[in-house]
Write a protein that binds this DNA or RNA. Structure first.
Length: 360
DNA sequence: AACAAGCTCAACCGCGATCTA
DNA sequence: TTAGATCGCGGTTGAGCTTGT
């Protein structure tokens, strides 16, 4: 069964290509086209297998290949597309002219994947990670964000936007920690929600899941109020509804059905009417992911948002590094003067609410 | 300066999909 | 219809480079 690898053929060269080989390949394809890759090596005078020639051509020698660093826009597109398509590198590559699937794959594995991990986002699922070690890092992130200096790596340093971004980073980290806590509580038999009714008064459910699977009023507005960061929070899966209806027009890997109030409240958006749809075509035209990347001056817009959270500039990122458990992280967060009202407001809001947060 | 560890990325490998006789 | 040939994709490897000690 199966055929032997083409490169097993005796005497065929493997390994790095020499300039001479490159020239032969370029010259042949330029004048004849590649035709049958299988037949090409002999016709071009190359002691290589066809597969090797094809790879060399498509990944390196093709004249339309764009080399050099990936732009921020390209990074955003890759992350967006990966959240939709997964490891479909060739499909992602079709959206990035001049980039090869191999190049994108390498860039993902060596750079973007790590960026997401540093943010506490699982690069596979684009959802928050739930392991405890990560929460230590998250705690650091919280402290750093509160300090307003550390941005999520490569965030812009422009003074004009740094404060807003710091607030957003803090919001992002806080939301993430909350969801991580909840996931762990719900997945840990000792901490299962069956035993924690007293905490919130209402049984069951991942609050985000519950918040997100109700009837939507937020998907109806045609004018998106979300800025890139909020869209990223959603698109990254941070607030993604795993049970979102699959029949929503225009939504391929997104969510719908957000209950009124809560998410905008978390995000500091007082006007709770917004839309968030994402599909493959949109990612070609929109920059949905400012969070990971540095921003050009003036490209970060805050629309109809009210950011009320204060931060403590005296708290350094290293102060929180000693937190070693999820509960310590939680305690720290709750004890933090800079965030207590924020979190307590959320908990009070959600624990006392009867509607529209129906599931918490 | 020397070595180790980590990183990058071109290239390879194997498999499933598609083509073709 | 089918089996072999070919193509294309995604995962993996490893040589060379960079950074840290």
């Amino acid at each position: 069964m199966g055929r032997p690898p083409c490169c097993d053929e005796d005497g065929l060269k493997k390994g790095p290509w020499t300039p001479e080989e490159d020239q032969k390949l370029i010259a042949y394809i330029s004048s004849h086209g590649h035709g049958s890759w299988r037949a090409l090596p002999k016709l071009a005078g190359l002691n290589r297998c066809g597969k090797s020639c094809r790879l060399r051509w498509t990944n390196y020698l093709r004249p339309d290949i764009k080399r050099g660093k990936f732009s921020e826009d390209e990074e955003r597109k890759i992350i967006n597309l990966h959240s939709i398509l997964g490891n479909k590198w060739s499909r992602i590559a079709t959206k990035l002219p001049g980039r090869t699937d191999n190049e994108i794959k390498n860039y993902w594995n060596t750079n973007l994947r790590k960026k997401l991990l540093r943010m506490g986002i699982d690069p596979t699922s684009h959802k928050p990670r739930t392991d405890l070690n990560h929460l230590v890092n998250l705690s650091q992130l919280l402290g750093a964000a509160n300090f307003r200096n550390l941005m999520i790596p490569n965030w812009g340093s422009q003074a004009l936007i740094s404060n807003l971004q710091a607030d957003h980073a803090s919001h992002l980290a806080n939301i993430q920690l909350l969801q991580n806590l909840w996931q762990i509580i719900n997945t840990n038999p000792l901490l299962n929600m069956d035993n924690t009714d007293h905490l919130f008064g209402i049984r069951n459910l991942n609050p985000f899941e519950g918040l997100l699977n109700g009837t939507s009023t937020l998907y109806m507005n045609k004018e998106p109020l979300l800025t890139g960061l909020e869209e990223y929070i959603i698109d990254s899966g941070l607030l993604k509804n795993p049970k979102a209806p699959s029949n929503c027009p225009g939504i391929s890997n997104s969510w719908e059905g957000v209950s009124d109030g809560f998410i905008p409240e978390i995000l500091g958006i007082k006007n709770s009417s917004f839309s968030s749809t994402l599909n493959e075509n949109q990612t070609e035209n929109q920059n949905l992911l400012p969070a990971l990347l540095s921003e050009s001056p003036g490209t970060y817009h805050v629309n109809q948002m009210e950011i009320s959270k204060t931060t403590d500039p005296n708290q350094s990122s290293t102060e929180s590094a000693s937190s070693s458990t999820i509960f310590e992280a939680w305690d720290k967060l709750m004890d933090d003067e800079t965030s207590d009202t924020y979190w307590k407001d959320i908990l009070e809001l959600t624990s006392s609410s009867t509607s529209p947060i129906t599931s918490w």
